[in-house]
Simulated assay, not measured.
Amino acid sequence: MTESTLSAEAILRKLVSFPVLGGESNLPIAQWIRGYMNDLGVVSHTMTNDDHTKIGIHARIGPPVDGGIILSGHMDVVPVEGQDWDTNPFEVVDDGKGKLYGRGTCDMKGFLACCLHLIPEMMEANLKKPIYLAFSYDEEVGCQGAPALIDDIGTTYAEKPKYAIIGEPTMMQPVIGQKGICVLETTVNGSAGHSSRIRQEVSAVHEAARLIVWIEEKMNELIQKGHLDDRFDPPHSSMHVGSVTGGIAPNVIADQATFEWDMRVIPGNTVDQILDEFHQYCAEREEKLKSIFPDFKITTTMGHYPVPPLDTSADSDILKLVQKLTGNHRWETVSYAAEAGQFSEAGYESIICGPGSIAQAHRANEFLEKEQLQLGIAFVKNLIQELSL
């Protein structure tokens, strides 16, 4: 069997065999995908990160005219360390009962396999509008690779794609909304001393606690002011502190404390808006306490650039198209973040729809049902047919 005649399942097996985790170099899997495309006569384009250890890939199949559709997915996966797998996570195992086990089968190499498998059919079709394949890196560590990939698509092609379909696992159910996310780290620099001098020193732990309470109260304030969107569960922006470190002993005033937190914002709220208020509160605390300890300081850094929410209209053309292609006439929203919000922010009508269940993502014994793989293939086939009319 040559590369040009690989089945979707065979391609999935190859993709899963590359243990490329988010944050690591993805050159092996990216180079294989590029070679596969090249063997089929597809001209692919790449963009790289600053140290050239990661590659984003995009390609156009069809005429260079406005109105095309981007099919997008990420090449990286989450770690398997500490998970109790029954099989080798980087080898696809067929259980003989309709399930394909392996890291990334569901999230989201199954969708990539559907797209790559159907490249010959895309090239043979009389497409009236182009199909763009766009594969990113570092999605699993904060959707870090998509912005540069999206920018490169915008500068490479003279024409303008209209839609973007991001193939995250949704059981082929159209998803028109996602929450945005931002991961942050806040460090408080206080003054060390004997615990009996708590009024003469500035405890970093105490101040960190005040900031954590502010974060929770801010979330509650947004809820009380009616910043709600019933399409989501929970129906509001959430803020959560996941880890706190600081101090060395109960009788020593802590000179440093750090906490890590995240924000997941509904459409209508913005990370910048909430952060501005947080920074203002931090500035107030600094101004008050510098009289006690001049070097008192609060520093907040982002783990990655904020991922914007997705808020595609229920009346949008992209939803109508995906409903037609899948036969699923309902729509949903999700509380996790994905690259769809970034494509939408760049001006493409965007939606999330792909094979597999999100319930299988990021866990031991991740699997993709063969039926879902076939539904993904049928979806892309229907798209090819739709763009050939």
Rank of each mutant, 00 (worst) to 15 (best):
Thr326Ile: 12
Gly82Glu: 12
His52Ala: 01
Glu260Trp: 11
Leu127Lys: 09
Gly167Cys: 15
Ile176Met: 12
Val141Met: 03
Thr326Tyr: 06
Thr53Ala: 01
Ser238Pro: 00
Ile352Phe: 10
Gly102Asn: 02
Ala10His: 07
Pro306Asn: 11
Met75Gln: 11
Phe343Ala: 03
Leu228Met: 06
Glu260His: 15
Gly193Ser: 12
Tyr157Cys: 04
Phe293Arg: 00
Lys162Met: 09
Pro174Val: 13
Gly67Gln: 06
Val20Gly: 03
Ile292Pro: 08
Glu286Ile: 07
Glu371His: 12
Ile253Thr: 01
Ser44His: 09
Gly73Lys: 01
Met172Ser: 14
Val380Lys: 12
Met263Pro: 00
Pro63Ile: 11
Leu27Lys: 15
Pro79Thr: 11
Cys143Arg: 04
Cys106Arg: 07
Thr87Phe: 11
Ser237Lys: 02
Gly104Thr: 08
Thr333Leu: 02
Val241Pro: 07
Leu12Glu: 08
Leu100Val: 00
Leu100Ser: 05
Ala361Gly: 06
Ala10Glu: 15
Lys320Trp: 02
Asp138Cys: 06
Ser313Met: 06
Ser237Met: 08
Leu71Ala: 04
Ala204Arg: 08
Lys370His: 02
Ala192Thr: 14
Glu139Ser: 12
Phe259Pro: 13
Gly82Tyr: 09
Gly73Leu: 01
Asp84Trp: 02
Ser191Lys: 15
Leu373Gln: 10
Ala254Phe: 04
Leu15Lys: 02
Ala10Val: 06
Gln224Pro: 00
Val380Trp: 11
Leu21Thr: 06
Tyr137Ile: 08
Pro250Tyr: 11
Ala346Ile: 03
Lys109Ser: 09
Gln83Thr: 14
His279Asn: 05
Gly68Lys: 06
Asp317Ala: 15
Thr87Cys: 07
Val77His: 03
Leu127Ile: 05
Pro147Ser: 04
Met108Gly: 12
Glu284Met: 10
Pro130Ser: 13
Gly56Gln: 01
Phe296Ile: 01
Lys109Ile: 09
Gln200Lys: 05
Lys324Leu: 06
Asn189Gln: 13
Ala257His: 10
Asp262His: 06
Ser243Thr: 15
Glu339Ile: 08
Ala340Val: 00
Ser4Lys: 15
Ile198His: 00
Asn269Thr: 15
Tyr36Pro: 00
Tyr101Ser: 11
Leu118Met: 15
Glu345Met: 11
Met219Ser: 12
Arg330Val: 09
Gly242Asn: 03
Asn220Ser: 03
Leu289Tyr: 13
Glu284Arg: 09
Asn251Glu: 04
Leu387Ile: 12
Leu118Glu: 14
Leu71Gly: 04
Thr312Ile: 04
Lys128Cys: 03
Gln173Cys: 13
Leu133Ala: 04
Pro306Val: 13
Ser44Arg: 02
Ala125Ile: 07
Lys109Trp: 02
Pro309Phe: 14
Ser191Arg: 14
Val43Leu: 13
